[in-house]
């Protein structure tokens, strides 16, 4: 495992825990897109179907269990425990606009036409765009709380660090995964605007506000 990947994974864990921490301590899901979290939950479940069929390492299995359980917990907090605080009326992005294309693409572009491989490709494609409802919500309400901004930054950094990991693996191991790399680049590019606002505002101690 490359250092970039380890840093990426830790950034991913940090993002998930930050979000849970925010919702739990403020007892509120305000400003958080339930749709994005629901799609991330679908991403983990459809990608980690191999949890019981192919063992890679204790590290891999632990992370998979952590991602699935933290994601299910997040969805539960948003849609059940703190449902009253969830801004459903600002969370207007249509999930089928990304789920259907991700599924169609997975049926066309996969490493083998098997249930596991199609499910894996679907999860990779869906992950690339699952953040759209959240970014759309930030744009719509015009701002994000600082902790939500830190969450988005950690989540964006995760795939950006994976890109460095893929470059490293390509040069040193000859490893190249076109599906993951393509989706990962799209995923990172989607955070472009947000990264800019994060560095120019949040880091300087201001709240993240999108200009009208």
């Amino acid at each position: 495992m490359t250092l970039f990947r380890l840093a990426g994974d830790l950034s991913h864990v940090l993002a998930i825990l930050l979000l849970l921490y925010k919702i739990w301590t403020t007892k509120s899901a305000a400003g958080i897109s339930g749709k994005t979290q629901l799609m991330f939950c679908m991403v983990y479940v459809t990608r980690y179907l191999d949890l019981f069929t192919s063992f890679i390492s204790v590290y891999n299995s632990t992370m998979k269990v952590l991602f699935i359980s933290a994601s299910v917990a997040t969805v539960y907090l948003i849609y059940f425990k703190f449902k009253a605080t969830y801004d459903g009326n600002h969370d207007t992005f249509r999930m089928e606009f990304v789920i259907v294309p991700a599924l169609i693409l997975a049926l066309i572009w996969n490493y083998a036409f098997t249930f596991f491989e199609i499910s894996w490709a679907f999860s990779i494609f869906l992950e690339a765009v699952a953040i759209l409802p959240q970014l759309f919500m930030v744009t719509k309400t015009g701002e994000a709380e600082n902790i939500t901004s830190h969450y988005l930054f950690a989540l964006g950094s995760y795939r950006a660090l994976y890109i460095l990991n893929w470059i490293d693996r390509y040069y040193f191991e000859g490893h190249w995964d076109p599906i993951a790399v393509t989706a990962g680049i799209v995923q990172t590019v989607l955070y472009g605007d947000f990264f800019y606002l994060y560095f120019t505002r949040v880091i300087k101690g201001r709240k993240l506000q999108v200009l009208p």
């Binding site: 990947r5 991913h12 998979k64 490493y111 990991n165």
Partner: peptide, 10 residues
């Protein structure tokens, strides 16, 4: 082996 290699990341 090829298939395994694609799924060693998270």
């Amino acid at each position: 082996k090829e298939q395994q290699q694609h799924h060693d990341e998270l």
